[in-house]
Simulated assay, not measured.
Amino acid sequence: MDRLMKHTEENIQKQQALDKKAGVDKNTKSGRSAQTKPKGSADAKVDKEEAKNIVAKGKKRKADSGIEDNPATEKLIKIQIPPNLKKQLVDDWEFITQQNKLVKLPRSPSVDEILTKYLEYRSKKDGMMTDAVGEILNGLRSYFDKALPTILLYKKERQQYREAISDNVSPSSVYGAEHLLRLFVKLPELLGYVKIEEETLIRLQQKLLEFLKFMLNNQSSFFLASYDGTEGGGKGKDN
């Protein structure tokens, strides 16, 4: 996992450089196309389109990610996001891009706290603390901190990020489940850059799915039911 993390961090930096060269902000949309149809379309059509984008099956998503020329994307790791969490991603997109709302920061529980809760949950379930689970959680935390400002934010969230994160503050201590879930949309692309043995890939995929199930089982306590209004694209204000 440490090796995967090192390669992934390098590729996040490479993708950031490509983004600056292209002068675009499309890849910050968590796999959704900038040309997504407005809310005037029927809800069913919106959900269907978003679901396609979430699981990385459309050409638009490849264009948004900025890696359409990356041959590794042909062999992406498959992460099946549960339907209720897909709906959560759609709601997340709608709150921010259609309703001009933001996740109020800092979030509680934070990404760090969610990862700690999962480690405690697995320790009780397995009767012991396994190194493999700890490594994966540390990898997720590192991926999140490095990927958030580069590929996990919508354009309307960037000012808020600049206000919330300083040099000595890690995103995983400020952001929560809403943004952590976006990481699982991007993980197939990030891991697609790295050569992984099939056996290792299967184990990693299974452990990531187990973590998503944990998030699903705690959806009501981990995720916000609604977002805050915004003022000039900055921090969310109190309702």
Rank of each mutant, 00 (worst) to 15 (best):
E157W: 01
S65W: 07
D19M: 06
G229F: 03
P38E: 12
I77F: 11
Q159T: 05
S123H: 04
K21C: 03
G58T: 00
P83W: 02
I202S: 07
D238S: 14
G176Q: 07
E120L: 12
G40Y: 03
S221C: 06
W93C: 07
L183R: 12
V55P: 00
S173V: 08
S142K: 15
I96M: 11
S30N: 13
E231Y: 08
M128I: 08
L181Q: 15
P38F: 13
G58F: 00
N217R: 10
I151V: 08
R107W: 06
T150Q: 09
K186L: 14
G192R: 03
Y143C: 13
S41T: 12
L148N: 15
N239D: 12
K78E: 13
V185N: 08
L191W: 13
F211D: 14
P83E: 10
K21L: 05
D91A: 11
I136E: 03
Q205E: 14
E120P: 02
L140T: 09
H7G: 15
Q98T: 08
A56P: 00
E163R: 14
G40W: 05
G236D: 11
Y118E: 09
E135N: 03
L115G: 03
L212D: 06
A72K: 05
I54W: 01
G232S: 08
L183W: 10
L204Q: 06
R122M: 09
E210F: 03
R141E: 09
F211L: 14
G134F: 01
I79D: 11
S166Y: 02
E10H: 13
E210I: 11
Y227F: 04
H7Y: 14
K37T: 08
L152G: 10
P82S: 02
D91K: 12
D2S: 11
I165M: 12
